[in-house]
């Protein structure tokens, strides 16, 4: 009788010990995993930071002017189509315009079909190379959309009118 009570107490102590043990193991796993995650995320952020130039899909005009690529090397130039710069040349198919990023401007020439979203004051990515006289010769044009979504009915309104309508409809 007494013996069995002692046994029971012992098994209880042992059970308590293992419960504490598993809680401790859980804590250990938690701490280890959090440390591993912090290191991993830190490494990924560092890699992304190191890649910030290489992983860019295009150069902006300021970069092209600061470090002009050797003529003939295929590069991409991205920026805004400068307002009032878009002109069609005498042959009717070649267009000329300027790409700007607020700091610099690069003249571009292109012959071919432009995407339907290609307009002045909107974004563009030109694939091509630097030609003679600092003119970028584009082989292909891609339109770049910005993050603003404006209904078509509002396109002729002034900014204030459109904002008023947006306020009224979003409420």
């Amino acid at each position: 009788m007494q013996e069995s009570a002692e046994n029971m107490a012992q098994t209880e102590r042992m059970a308590k010990g293992t419960v504490q043990g598993t809680i401790k193991a859980k804590h250990q796993r938690l701490v280890l995993l959090v440390i591993a995650l912090v290191v991993l995320i830190g490494a990924a952020l560092l890699a992304a930071w190191a890649l910030r130039n290489q992983a860019s899909y295009f150069y902006v005009p300021a970069e092209i002017q600061a470090h002009p690529p050797e003529s003939g090397r295929a590069v991409r130039l991205g920026g805004m189509v400068a307002k009032g710069s878009l002109k069609t040349e005498a042959d009717g198919v070649t267009i000329a315009f300027a790409v700007e990023d607020g700091k610099a401007r690069v003249p571009v020439r292109f012959k071919g079909i432009v995407p339907s979203l290609f307009v002045e004051g909107s974004g563009v990515v030109a694939e091509g190379h630097m030609g003679a006289g600092g003119v970028f010769e584009a082989d292909n044009l891609l339109a770049k959309h910005d993050e603003n979504y404006v209904p078509r009915e509002m396109k002729d309104m002034t900014r204030e009118q459109a904002e008023k309508v947006m306020r009224e409809t979003t409420r």
Binding site: I113, V114, P115, S116, F118
Partner: peptide, 8 residues
């Protein structure tokens, strides 16, 4: 020349 695709 501008591309004209049918959006729909």
């Amino acid at each position: 020349m501008r591309e004209a695709l049918d959006a729909w």
